[in-house]
């Protein structure tokens, strides 16, 4: 048995080291090469540029709380919301009094900011996401804010609604996932819309 122990130990050590080289270095290395050559935009984090400046990632949400932008979902990252180097959910349990209090507070703020909205509040707009970096809101959550945006930006409601429609992504093949609107892309388009309108004036 002692002899077997020595033989197997030697093989273990050699194989452990080769595995590190093959699966720890060569495999990710080759995939990085492939990614950088074929899909450089995605492989580097889907970074969006405006006038040459990096202004965000198409996949990572940003905090929007000003009245003239569509708001994102609440985020539980620390120390500030939408901290993209420290993803985190709230992890609050369903009957935790903190959760109930947070949601109540968000509902109040939302109602105050959208006084003309009488309908039910979309759940995703008052609950924090799993990653704290959710780039999307539901189409209902965007519609809920349409009147406010139109009012603040002096746009017609139909123009804002059209924009929402344009940026709504459906389910994949009509089956998988949920319909959604990317908040950063929507807000960038909104800025562009306001700009062209001001330019025409």
């Amino acid at each position: 048995m002692m002899k077997q122990f020595r033989i197997q130990l030697k093989i273990s050590i050699i194989l452990a080291v080769i595995s590190i080289i093959v699966f720890g270095l060569i495999y990710p290395g080759i995939m990085t090469l492939v990614g950088q050559l074929i899909f450089p935009y995605q492989a580097n984090g889907s970074i969006i540029r405006l006038h040459g400046k990096k202004i965000g990632s198409a996949l990572i949400g940003q905090s929007f709380t000003q009245p003239d932008y569509f708001w994102s979902r609440p985020s539980a990252t620390t120390p500030f919301p939408y901290n993209a180097s420290n993803s985190s959910g709230s992890n609050l349990g369903p009957i935790n009094p903190d959760l109930i209090r947070h949601v109540q507070l968000r509902v109040e703020v939302l109602k105050k900011a959208n006084p003309n909205q009488k309908g039910p509040i979309p759940m995703d707009l008052v609950t924090s996401s799993a990653s704290g970096l959710d780039p999307d809101i539901s189409p209902a959550a965007a519609q809920y804010q349409a009147a406010r945006i139109a009012h603040v930006r002096h746009l017609s409601i139909s123009a804002v609604q059209q924009l929402i429609q344009k940026y709504t992504q459906g389910r994949w093949l009509g089956i998988f996932g949920e319909p959604r609107v990317n908040v950063l892309e929507l807000n960038l388009a909104l800025n562009q819309l306001s700009n062209t309108k001001n330019f025409k004036k």
Partner: peptide, 28 residues
Amino acid sequence: GILIWQGCPQTFRGSQKVQLVSPLIYNQ
């Protein structure tokens, strides 16, 4: 390969710093 195509990063560069579209005020 499929994951990269769909948007998973695959790079050895460090974190990317981007300028927020709408600055954020929080109570530190």
